[in-house]
């Protein structure tokens, strides 16, 4: 198969370029990541992040033929004969397929991603009914790969002000947790022209999420709760 990869090493290159590789696949090569690892055995200068190779660590997010995804769970058979790989859009490129995710994590941290509960901790677990626990499904599974936020034009324009779909999905994860007591504080923090309301529901995030999560729906729920408390 033919793979064209975005290459840029600030130590060496004046400007980025696409480099073409003809990859001879082995029968055991199933995923796009396998093909990248094969390229790297020939050209060790190709740089990308990878770790778990099973879609749970979120390291190898990249732009695959124009769409964000994880290389390790993208099947080669589902791809055309010529694939073009670029770094995730909208974030500064450090080198090749590696982007600087500082801004992305800053937004994640800004939503206070932890349960806030002011009661003294009981001796045993805090009780939560299965129905209450079900509210967290589709939220807690996020792997922070940034496929969604870097597919979102609002995040491209205002990465410093708009929390972005990944951060907002987690904001709702804590609002939805029956053990959390900081809903009002969390809503106050998001009631802002940028932090939440830059989402225009174009649903690129839903399309991009490799874990089939739905940030747009979570954002809708936050807006709903805000409206309810306003009236």
């Amino acid at each position: 198969m033919k793979i064209s990869v975005y290459r840029y090493d600030p130590d060496r290159d004046e400007r980025p370029y696409l480099k073409d590789y003809e990859v001879k696949l082995e029968p055991t090569d199933r995923m796009l990541l396998d093909a990248l690892v094969r390229i790297k055995t020939q050209d060790d200068s190709l740089s990308f992040r990878r770790s778990c190779r099973e879609g749970v660590c979120g390291s190898d997010a990249m732009n695959i033929n124009g769409k964000n995804g994880l290389a390790c769970v993208t099947k080669i058979v589902d791809l055309p004969a010529h694939v073009t790989l670029r770094p995730l859009p909208g974030l500064p490129v450090i080198r090749d397929l590696i982007v600087d995710m500082t801004q992305f994590f800053k937004q994640y941290h800004s939503i206070k991603p932890y349960v806030i509960n002011h009661d003294a901790p009981p001796e045993r677990e805090r009780l939560q009914s299965p129905a209450e626990r079900d509210q967290l499904n589709g939220l807690y599974e996020c792997i922070l790969c940034a496929c969604c936020s870097t597919a979102c034009p609002s995040f491209w324009w205002n990465p410093d002000k708009f929390v972005g779909p990944a951060g907002l999905l987690q904001a709702y994860r804590f609002i939805a947790d029956s053990r959390d007591q900081a809903t009002a504080e969390r809503l106050d923090d998001l009631e802002d022209p940028y932090r939440l309301f830059r989402c225009h529901s174009i649903m690129n995030c839903v399309d991009a999420c490799p874990k089939n999560l739905n940030p747009t729906r979570a954002i809708g729920k936050i807006k709903e709760i805000m409206v309810k408390r306003a009236v």
């Binding site: 932890y114 509960n117 045993r124 805090r126 009780l127 299965p130 626990r133 807690y140």
Partner: peptide, 19 residues
């Protein structure tokens, strides 16, 4: 494990609300 639950670990639950 109880501490982890207090930290917010989203354990699955039994009908009685326990882990």
């Amino acid at each position: 494990v109880i501490e982890l639950e207090h930290m917010g670990m989203p354990f699955d639950r039994l009908e009685n609300g326990k882990i």
